[in-house]
Design a protein around this nucleic acid. Structure first.
Lengths: 108, 108
DNA sequence: ACCGTACTACGACGTTCGTCGAACTTCGAC
DNA sequence: GTCGAAGTTCGACGAACGTCGTAGTACGGT
């Protein structure tokens, strides 16, 4: 069979579908903000989801990552059994210039 | 007696007490974001709370304004029976440069 | 003194949210 | 083929949230 490496991109909103309320609500949770902060300091081509330490269980982590993804804050692609996450910097900067830097620059 | 005009400032966090999670969560609600957007387009010296149209009742409005105030997003002072609200632009810009503009510049 | 306006306080309610554990899927390695 | 590692899904639970109506406070005007 031709098990060609699929698109592997998990469903996410296009740039024009991103809504500011959802982005802000997604970033408003301490666990998710912690995740985004660590993701922002990672190499440009992303990070395995599980490699970021979080004070919650696996299933709760999945829940939070989904909210970030559906809000348009992060992108996830499947690589083997892993998920690689990246910050959607370009989209966020284009839509809300300054927002991301303002959030990431806040007192840790 | 000396009914000197009191401080009239309602309790709010000092600049150094403002927490980014609270700010983002406060701005993440549609009703509150609507309020902040209208407040941002108002004259620099603020707006009477009740003069901003919102699709909720009085008591719900009070609730939301308190959340915005306690998060450090707005400032309120009493003038007669009215409350005048102002955006804490200086504090927010100093703490999270770019954030406020990013949020306010978002598609209406 | 009275009344109306502007707002706050207090329950109460239904809904959403964050959390978890257990069961399941998928993939890679041996 | 079997095992383990990485994630997801599915209830379930308590806590927090958004909403409302009623009652109460505080101030200004007449």
């Amino acid at each position: 069979m031709s098990p060609v490496t699929q698109p592997t991109e998990l469903p996410q909103p296009g740039r024009e579908e991103i809504r500011i309320e959802q982005v802000l609500a997604a970033l408003g949770d301490p666990v998710r903000l912690l995740y985004v902060r660590q993701l922002a300091e990672a190499p440009p081509e992303g990070l395995a989801c599980g490699s970021v330490p979080l004070p919650v269980t696996k299933s709760t982590r999945t829940h939070h990552l989904r909210i970030l993804r559906e809000a348009g804050v992060i992108s996830m692609r499947a690589v083997g059994t892993r998920r690689i996450a990246t910050l959607r910097r370009d989209d966020l900067n284009a839509l809300y210039p300054g927002l991301l830097d303002g959030v990431l620059g806040a007192p840790h």
